[in-house]
Structure formats: C-alpha cells, structure tokens
C-alpha cells in the first residue's frame, strides 16, 4: 500500500492541486449567480423568524377559565367584560394589550401594565378574568412551565 488515502480522493486532490485552472468566478454560470442571489434573499428574509418568535399577535380573554374572545393585536380597541364582581376593561393597541381597569380591590392586573410577549398573562382573580397574549404557534399555551 502506497498510502492510506483512498484512490478516488487522491485522484481528486491531484486534480485540485493541478495548474491551468480558470479563475474561480468563471466557474459560476449566469443562473448560478441568480440562484445565489435568490438564496441570499431567502436567508435574509428568514432571519426575522429567529427574533420574532416571542412576539404576540393576539390577546385571549378568559372568564372562569373559558375563552370569551380573541382579539388580534393589529387594531387598537377597548373591550369590556362583565365578571364576577364587575366590569373589566381591556385595552388593545398594535402589538400590546393591558387591563385598563378592573373592580378588584388590589389592582394587581392593572398595575402589570402593557403585555407584549407571547404567553404573558395578567390575572384579575377577584373578577375571574384573565388576559393572555399568544404568539404564532399556539401550542405553547399547552404548558404552564417547561424545565429541563
């Protein structure tokens, strides 16, 4: 045995080291440039996916654990909901939502302020109302917590 390199690989290496090659750019044909450009655009467009994963696109409002309504976080609006002890007002603006007012004595859910992340939740326990944001993949809602 002359060497442990397989014949096919040695042949290819010998060719790669050979002289008389055309410059690299001549190895690309017109369609190759076009395809590389298209692929580059696709890759660039895919980057927002990586960072937008945690953003919310709708607010889910529940009373007594049951979904009352789902509001898209694209249009500003207010939503009034009558719960166990009074009326809770929820305000939606593009990309965020909050509990504007609530009859609960300690106002925890109001003081939480604007919710912006998917799966963020404001709970107005005395009035039995919850406001939760959901992202594009609704499956995350199946878990309260995840740990590894």
């Amino acid at each position: 045995m002359k060497s442990s390199v397989p014949d096919g690989l040695r042949e290819l290496l010998a060719q790669a080291a050979g002289d008389g090659h055309a410059p690299w750019r001549t190895l690309l044909r017109p369609g190759d440039w076009l395809l590389l450009l298209a692929a580059g655009v696709f890759v660039a467009a895919s980057y927002p996916l990586l960072w937008r994963g945690g953003t919310a696109d709708r607010a889910i409002i529940k009373r007594d654990g049951e979904v009352v309504t789902e509001l898209a976080l694209s249009v500003a609006r207010k939503y009034e909901l009558t719960g166990a002890i009074g009326t809770t007002v929820i305000e939606v603006q593009p990309g965020r939502a909050r509990v504007l007012s609530d009859p609960g004595p300690r106002q925890y859910c109001v003081q939480q302020g604007w919710l912006t992340r998917a799966n963020a939740v404001a709970i107005c326990a005395p009035n039995h109302v919850t406001l939760q944001l959901a992202g594009r993949s609704g499956q995350n809602g199946a878990y309260d917590t995840l740990n590894y």
Partner: peptide
Amino acid sequence: YLLPLFATAALVFGAINGLVAARLLDAP
C-alpha cells in the same frame, strides 16, 4: 426558529462545495 442559522450554513457551504466541485469538474 433555527431555520435562519441552518439556511445561512446551507447557502455558504453549498456555494463553497459547489465551487470546489465545479473546479474539480473543470480540470482535465
């Protein structure tokens, strides 16, 4: 969510491997 990273790797390594293959095929 990892797609952008994998797609970047595919574009970069795909282009480099393709150039190497083109050069090997270009050789006599």
